[in-house]
Design a protein around this nucleic acid. Sequence first.
DNA 1: ATTTCATGATAAAGCGCTTCCTCAAACAGC
DNA 2: GCTGTTTGAGGAAGCGCTTTATCATGAAAT
Lengths: 343, 343
Amino acid sequence: MTAKKTTIKDIANEAGVSIALVSFVMSNQTRDPDERIYKVNEETSRRILEIARRLNYHPNNAARTLRQGKTNTIGVILSDISNKFFADIARCIEDRAYKYDYTVIFGSTDENADKLENLVKVLVDKGIDGLIIVPCAGSERFIASVAESRMPLVLMDRNIGGVDVSSVVLDNRSAMLQAVSTLVENGCTHIEMVGYDMCLSNVLEREEGYRQAMEHLGLGDHVAVHRIDFRNIESQVRSVIGSAVARGVEAFVFGTNTLTISGLKALDELEVSVPEQVRVVGFDDSEAFELYRTSVTYISQPIEQFGQESFDLLMKHIRNRDMQSMTVTLKPQIVEGKSSSKI
Amino acid sequence: MTAKKTTIKDIANEAGVSIALVSFVMSNQTRDPDERIYKVNEETSRRILEIARRLNYHPNNAARTLRQGKTNTIGVILSDISNKFFADIARCIEDRAYKYDYTVIFGSTDENADKLENLVKVLVDKGIDGLIIVPCAGSERFIASVAESRMPLVLMDRNIGGVDVSSVVLDNRSAMLQAVSTLVENGCTHIEMVGYDMCLSNVLEREEGYRQAMEHLGLGDHVAVHRIDFRNIESQVRSVIGSAVARGVEAFVFGTNTLTISGLKALDELEVSVPEQVRVVGFDDSEAFELYRTSVTYISQPIEQFGQESFDLLMKHIRNRDMQSMTVTLKPQIVEGKSSSKI
DNA sequence: ATTTCATGATAAAGCGCTTCCTCAAACAGC
DNA sequence: GCTGTTTGAGGAAGCGCTTTATCATGAAAT
């Protein structure tokens, strides 16, 4: 394959032209043919390209980057790339970036603000052109400083208040309204929510959405939110669900995919049958939902749109550094399985 | 944050020393203190470091790369990062790389050899120091050429024959022996396998392993392998399982996580109860397995080891370009649920 | 015959960093 | 007082590329 790295110089020598000319031919190659400002003799150009191919020339990225101050690489910082939700988004971003000749570097924070900070620093040092970040609790100040540094930046999944930065988020209130409404339509009134105990916009909005929906539907008296520490999900979910069931709860709404899975497991262990004894609406997609003894009703997030919109928005910021920041809000959709239905 | 990019030169000016000295101080920083070959005055060194911090200096990666011909970046090419198995491995590699100050760029092939080739080319152009690849069918020749190019390379999950290249793979025969043995111990004799119709070492070895296990246990007459086209999994699995059930099959062994999920869904749709009517052993972990109406027995791959060993092996190749290639074979473990048991 | 001008090409600077080589000074041994 | 050695530091080349400013050349215009 690559024997001994051909450079622009080798081609220039071989063709008997200057390296400048080779450079022009090479970059005009990728450029829109219309806007070629610089005229190169057709035949010379062909000859250079031919030699480049014969010598298996590949431009040196580091040199180009050094010169242009652009890496054509973006960083994407997620909570955890092994979480299906983020993995799916990662995949969409990867595909989209590939089309635009961008390379993506992923990082996982595990909801740890220090790690997030560190990852950003590493990536910035690498010279990335822009960043997509899923912020975690405690990273607000740092992210504000990144935004101020004029590094093109898009937040995803979660927003942070008081900072002028673009973001792509879900309409979490609508999600919860759909979840609660569906359950109410199926005759539930004692609907409780299981969410995280985190100070994140999406978490708070889902909780808020649940409350609003309950009140809106005249069930304000039955509002009950259980906040789970994400470092100890399984056991907390089990105890919360246990006592709720004992109190005669009719339905649960879960705030994320992980919570849904844990909740279903807990219900299994407690030998509570779904939907006969307790009805359930989950969040996010999971291959487990279809396979569960009764298919799970869940709020489906538009994964592809998350990936696309985040990437596109970041591109806009990279191309126009003075662009106003904006927030894109995506609509969720409820997918009805049997876990929320009456019988 | 970064106001107007401090360079080594700014520091040199500020400190009244040469840029060379600054460079030394900076690189000695990261180096093992013992092997400092070059002596710098303690006080000067401290002063330079102080100024660097004050000016918020961050070395320019492109310049360093251009100079050293090293990017401290590796490429990892998987089938699909949104597949749980690969996402988990990706996560392990990410973590390990982070520790070693390496950055990882991921790519997904979707089992498409052209895409693999393209990804490799893009990454090589980026100047990566090494590659971990999950090869796909049809990419053998190309991968051989990559190996010949002396690019540090490790194959993962699957091997390719006749090429001198390092790899980290599963002991697939052992996996299948465990799967079949468990079922036999639970009284099954009509055990059929559902695998992919692909010319990949892991696929073939699992099939082979199944055959050997069956013969070894005196069930050679009952050997039946169903090969599924991965582009059309759901429908094929359903029809294969339907007819096998009609023929009175006692158990299925699946070759991958996706096949297992599809298989369980199909059994649900056919209203075949597991394990009462048909017993099942799956492959790979899935959050769905615990949640399934009867917990699923499955072959568990040592994900963390996959990540770690691949990365470590690649590091060795990067550090010692003349290292002999080697194959690391990891042991699977069967996790017994109820789907394979007698009652 | 002279000026103008489009065309095609080049020279050279320099992006920020590493590293080899040179060099000054101080101090040792003789 | 001379040579040799250690210690601390600087000079400068150059990695491969982009890009600006400049320059030949021949054809068209005057």
